[in-house]
Design a protein around this nucleic acid. Sequence first.
DNA 1: TAGATTGTTAATCGATTAACAATC
DNA 2: TAGATTGTTAATCGATTAACAATC
Lengths: 214, 214
Amino acid sequence: MKKPVSDLTLRRFPKYIQFLKTLQKRGEKYTSASEIARRLGVHHTQVRKDLALTGVRGIPKVGHKVDDLIKAITKFIYWDEISYAFLVGAGHLGTAILHYQGFVKAGFQIVAAFDKNPEKIGKNIASVKIYNIDRFSYFAEKMDVRIGIITTTSEVAQKITDLMVKNGIKAIWNFTPIKLSVPADIIVENVDIYPSLAVLLRKLHELEKASRKK
Amino acid sequence: MKKPVSDLTLRRFPKYIQFLKTLQKRGEKYTSASEIARRLGVHHTQVRKDLALTGVRGIPKVGHKVDDLIKAITKFIYWDEISYAFLVGAGHLGTAILHYQGFVKAGFQIVAAFDKNPEKIGKNIASVKIYNIDRFSYFAEKMDVRIGIITTTSEVAQKITDLMVKNGIKAIWNFTPIKLSVPADIIVENVDIYPSLAVLLRKLHELEKASRKK
DNA sequence: TAGATTGTTAATCGATTAACAATC
DNA sequence: TAGATTGTTAATCGATTAACAATC
């Protein structure tokens, strides 16, 4: 069995795509691992290793075709296939996610949203209809969706997780700061802003403490 | 000069706080590194090392006082001091962030928001007033704020960054997927959902490929 | 006391970076 | 050709985990 690619590595690919697309927009046909590295602030060897994983081969002295790189990376992280998802929790964050423009380029499509608030049920947000959470099982069976997005409050996140797992969801994109309990074969990806806030505040305060000392 | 704490380490502290607060709510007075480790799925030695950084000392056989741990961690990541921030870009994501309840516990307070959309200017979102982006310099000088949150489109993110840096912002919390260029002494923390989406989709598709093969 | 827990030092593991041969 | 670039193997670095003495 081949060794799975590490999360740390996978997480770099969207940044490569983002930069490559700006090159593409500027009309540049070729780029090099060194240019990508310089621009994104990562080591050029690392860029080479990452690109090698996608199977592309560059040409010495010339570099890589921008279009080919984008295509190879997009395929590698499966952004070339359509992936359907359900979203639960149509609050402010859920609304923001439903409005995200950028999911199109990742082949990512939210096909239904769920909430328990009667005022929201039946309405559309960014062309996605909001259903009563009671109907989750019904839609899950009907639509064969494997990805669930949780943008509820922390309090109900575990309950929603259990509901999702029971209804065939294989991957959960968790936007609450709660650690979810799931069976071993269920994928959980957490998006949490507090770790980032901790890093930001600690660094800022340490910096200011240091500059006061001088 | 003491070695700065690594980002990877800092990012774990909010998870500890989150778990400790659930214990606190349940009325538990004591906990152990082992319990935290088990519950959050990290190694107990790692929890011990992390806690040691904050300066707390546990009691063999007994463990740590929950209240003391929360206090020590909160102080370590400077969530016990008030930090003021400006937010630029009052779209869906900006709105969601302005509504975040959880910032209070981190001492984090958004004191003003900025946008260029005339329909938004003058209104309040979650009690935070929206001003014309033209007035950023004015408020920056008046209020002595050091943190800037960017929730604009990618297109204007660098321009807003430059504006912030010029006006004394020392730490930028960047919610766009753009790599920002800043002077060396400016702190940038990125919150980007695409890396997470890449991990989620790659893992899900690899899993499904593997299960089809069986 | 015995056992559970703490906290530290040493070993391991994996990611990053350095070095270098190959080549258009 | 010379030089820039690729891609790979080896070395380094840092984070995680193992081992273990100390102790309430």
